[in-house]
Design a protein around this nucleic acid. Structure first.
Length: 838
RNA sequence: GGGCGAUUGGCUCAGUUGGUUAGAGCAUCUGCCUUACAAGCAGAGGGUCAUAGGUUCGAGUCCUAUAUCGCCCACCA
């Protein structure tokens, strides 16, 4: 028998191991239809946070649901090496030990990274287990596994041979702390306080000058021109002349280019082609020299003359001071502007001219947009609005910079010998080749995840059975990083979408709506929440509290009330189990009205829950199942069942209903449902491999449903009347019915009389049931008001309905069944009113 | 500048082809230790659904503006 109190700690103990030992998580039954999900691989950088708990709980719910529906389910787990993020962590750890990455050397450093990875994989495994995730660990993958690395090389080489991967010197985003290139998506723009430095660029041979405003004066060493708009009347005559570059004292040309906006600032722009993407374009148009003035670590190089070796910001300060002393600085205008920061190191990124590898996105992205027009092959977003986000990005995405100046990752499969370049799966034959030192953007391997994890391209057993996957679950914040890229790589290499559906959830915020972050210290550790409330409560709360795609404000109070809900389930189960020990077989025979009522409600619930499960609208599942369990089953049916608890029909109905409830809740709260299920006298082997409840039309009893609904309504009216009129102690009741259920529920047995009394009375009525309460009491004005209330409400409702039914437009245009319903309702209300007024 | 989302009782949120009296949890008030559950039971109060128009027999839901908050993208010399 169940313990008296629901204790999540003891309930959740040992269950996961039981499932694992019985291999319930493993896929591979060829007699069933396949269903697959790949986990978004968490980075091996740290512990899982609440966002992971949410994301993975959603997937577990889907996969457990499908497993119970009889699918052969593969939920493929794994982790991501997370190139820059992990490297930064390992570098920091080594630094604490006084070790420098470069002194350690590449080989030893990678060993450290693998060590780090193993430690964190271990943490992640424990956390998955604690969350109760039914991942198939026999299929686990890591992005640096040999198979996945082979896929990465294959894709790189193939795209290179198609001309879709190329090496080029372009302005990229440079992270001077990590000393690597970044993609546009890894740059976060933040508003920071800065300044416009207005400088004098003297026109050659004159004392006239052009006023140039810049936010980055230290780049002036790389200036190779000054641009004005060719249509700008103020300056057009100066085009072709030269200005003197301050400090450097060399001549650079004044050019006319549309990039200079006459409306902006002074209308004069200094052109630094090696340090600004727009200037780079201007430089190409005017064939300007590209002078780099920065080193990889953000210090100034020899072009900065006496400032060489200074950090870019120290240089800025010193330079501005010198410019001021020389009378070059006109003024400093303080402004707030948006500056790119590295997503990982938070360093201000520097637009930097550099030779890198790129993916040409033009045709790859176009194919995604085209594919989305085909309803049979598109990725179906839930909710659908996120499709637009993907399409917009795909429509104007720039070439993807994929090389990173890091060590942790997939080394680029390109080899050099003098001027020769070889790109291939393996090192070329012959002497003197050396491999490209750089590694690939971590998202390059993640983009292949749905198929590379299934053995593609060389071992296709899993791939043939489980790809494309059925659904991907992820947050809207990584649609660009990941969803888009998986989609284009999948279309390119498999000719299929990577997943049929893409369920998008939002971000977890704190109670005040702020993002959870380390700096704010408002983060919540999901493992702490599991310790306090249990994994079942956490999972249910996270997955049912918002509509798809919406953010979630984490509120511990709500988690607590979810725990209460599970406690309610626990206690209801205890009641059922205490009374059905003798049941050997569920026989839904000789059913009473109340049995038929709850079975009807149950079947309707099964129908709705299944519908919402299929649509992945778990908040709606909650609405339906919560009220069924708490209101219909606990508050009403169990109370009614107490009057016939020794009858077989009642026992069977209780058992059948509880069984269905447990099964429907199992995907959400696997532990507690597993534990309770094991106590049922009639059951399948284990709840997680049991069959999901099926809607059964034979158990719909509309007449009984309607009748008991009315009985419940009558009971409620009666209680309200007694309560509001402060009817206490002894009193008599005359009723117009012989309905046992009402009499027992309201404990009227000793109060019933047949005759009318000549004392104060209170009427309670519904369509078919009427009761008169006789209770000697002085009627105050307040009491009169309360007595009138129900009648007045009814009258108002009748009046409104009559008006509606007298409206010819409504009667002729509204659907017939609705009009009929309104008519019935009106008649019922009139009957009720007649009783009250008689 | 472009796009998206939100605005519903004190708080957090549902409300999916437009259709009875707009729901829930928490909070509040009243009365109950009724042997499944006081982490509970039985009741009650509380919303002109951001604003203004429009479509419709009928609008929280659809359309058009506006306001406030938030997010994404682009630009920012």
């Amino acid at each position: 028998m169940l313990e008296k109190k629901y204790d999540h700690l003891s309930v959740e103990k040992g269950v996961y191991e039981y499932w694992e030992n019985h291999h319930y998580f493993e896929c591979g039954d060829p007699s069933k239809k396949p269903y697959s999900i790949v986990i978004p691989p968490p980075n091996v950088t740290g512990k899982l946070h609440l966002g992971h708990a949410w994301d993975t709980a959603l997937q577990d719910i889907i996969i457990r649901f499908k497993r119970m529906q009889g699918y052969d389910c593969l939920w493929l787990p794994g982790t991501d090496h997370a190139a820059i993020a992990t490297e930064a962590k390992v570098v920091a750890r080594l630094k604490d030990e006084g070790i420098n990455k470069y002194e350690l050397g590449r080989e030893e450093f990678l060993k450290e990274c693998f060590k780090w990875t193993d430690e964190h994989k271990d943490i992640i495994h424990k956390q998955w287990a604690k969350l109760g995730l039914s991942v198939d660990l026999t299929k686990e993958r890591f992005t640096l596994d040999e198979g996945l690395s082979e896929a990465v090389r294959y894709v790189f080489v193939t795209l290179y041979n198609k001309g879709l991967i190329y090496q080029g010197e372009k302005i990229i985003n440079w992270d001077p702390v990590a000393k690597t290139a970044l993609s546009n998506e890894e740059v976060i723009y933040k508003d920071v306080k800065g300044a416009f430095y207005h400088l004098k660029y003297f026109i050659e041979g004159t004392t006239d000058y052009l006023e140039v405003a810049t936010t980055r004066p230290e780049t002036l060493f790389g200036d190779t021109a000054v641009a004005v708009n060719p249509d700008d009347e103020r300056y057009k005559d100066l085009i072709g002349k030269n200005v003197v570059l301050p400090i450097v004292n060399k001549l650079i040309p004044i050019i006319g280019d549309v990039h200079a906006d006459p409306e902006f600032g002074t209308g004069v722009v200094k052109i630094t082609p090696a340090h600004d993407p727009n200037d780079y374009e201007v430089g190409l148009r005017h064939n300007l020299e590209r002078i780099k003035v920065l080193n990889e670590d953000g210090t100034m190089n020899e072009k900065a003359l006496k400032y060489e070796g200074m950090d870019r910001f120290a240089c800025r300060e010193a330079l501005v001071k010198d410019l001021d002393e020389e009378g070059i600085l006109i003024r400093v205008e303080e402004i707030t502007h948006s500056v790119g920061h590295s997503e990982r190191t938070n360093a201000m990124v520097e637009p930097y001219l550099s030779r890198q590898w790129f993916v040409n996105m033009k045709d790859l992205s176009k194919r995604v947009v085209e594919n989305q027009k085909n309803k049979d092959t598109k990725v179906n977003f839930i909710p659908p609005r996120f499709e637009k986000i993907m399409n917009n990005w795909m429509n104007d995405c720039h070439d993807w910079c994929i090389s990173r100046q890091l060590w942790w990752g997939h080394q680029i499969p390109a080899w050099y010998r003098g001027e020769e370049v070889y790109v291939g799966m393996n090192a070329p034959e012959g002497e003197g080749w050396h491999q490209d030192e750089d590694v690939l953007d971590t998202w390059f391997s993640s983009a292949l995840w749905p198929f590379s994890t299934m053995g593609w391209p060389s071992n296709l057993d899993l791939y043939n059975r489980y790809f494309p996957t059925n659904v991907l679950v992820t947050g809207y914040d990584i649609i660009f990083f990941w969803v888009c890229r998986m989609t284009f790589q999948s279309l390119e290499f498999t000719d299929k979408r990577p997943f049929e559906k893409c369920l998008i959830h939002g971000l977890i915020r704190d109670k005040e709506g702020r993002k959870m972050s380390k700096s704010l210290g408002n983060g919540v550790d999901p493992m702490d929440m599991i310790d306090t409330y249990g994994a079942d409560a956490l999972r249910y709360y996270l997955t049912t509290s918002t509509a798809p795609g919406m953010d979630l404000r984490f509120d511990e109070e709500k988690l607590k009330s979810t725990w209460n809900f599970i406690n309610k389930l626990w206690n209801a189960s205890r009641f059922v189990l205490m009374n059905i020990e003798s049941v050997k077989e569920v026989k839904l025979e000789n059913l009473k009205m109340s049995d038929r009522w709850i079975l009807t409600k149950l079947e309707k619930t099964i129908k709705d829950v299944t519908k919402y499960m299929e649509k992945m609208e778990f908040n709606n599942v909650n609405t339906v199942i919560y009220s069924f369990i708490w209101n219909d089953f606990c508050d009403n049916y169990i109370e009614m069942a107490k009057f016939s608890i020794d009858e077989d029909n009642t026992k069977s109905t209780l058992l059948y209903t509880l069984t269905c409830i447990l099964k429907m809740l199992h995907p959400f709260m696997p532990y507690v449902t597993n534990v309770i299920y094991d106590y049922l006298p009639v059951r399948e082997e284990n709840i997680m491999i049991s069959s999901y409840p099926m809607y059964d039309k034979k158990l719909i009893f509309s007449a009984e449903e309607e009748n008991v609904d009315e009985i419940i309504n009558f009971i409620k009216n009666y209680r309200t009347t007694v309560k509001e009129n402060n009817i206490i102690g002894n009193y008599q009741v005359k009723v117009n019915f012989q309905e046992d259920l009402i009499i027992k529920m309201l404990k009227l047995q000793d109060k019933l009389i047949d005759t009318e009394e000549d004392i104060t009375s209170f009427k309670v009525s519904t369509k078919n049931y009427e009761g008169i309460i006789y209770y000697e009491k002085e009627i105050t004005e307040e009491d009169k008001r309360l007595q009138e209330k129900q009648i007045n409400e009814l009258k108002a409702s009748i009046k409104k309905r009559e008006a509606l039914l007298n409206n010819q437009n409504f009667v002729s245009k509204a659907p017939a069944d609705l009009v009929a319903k309104e008519k019935i309702k009106l008649e019922d209300e009139k009957k009720e009113l007649a009783k009250l007024e008689s």
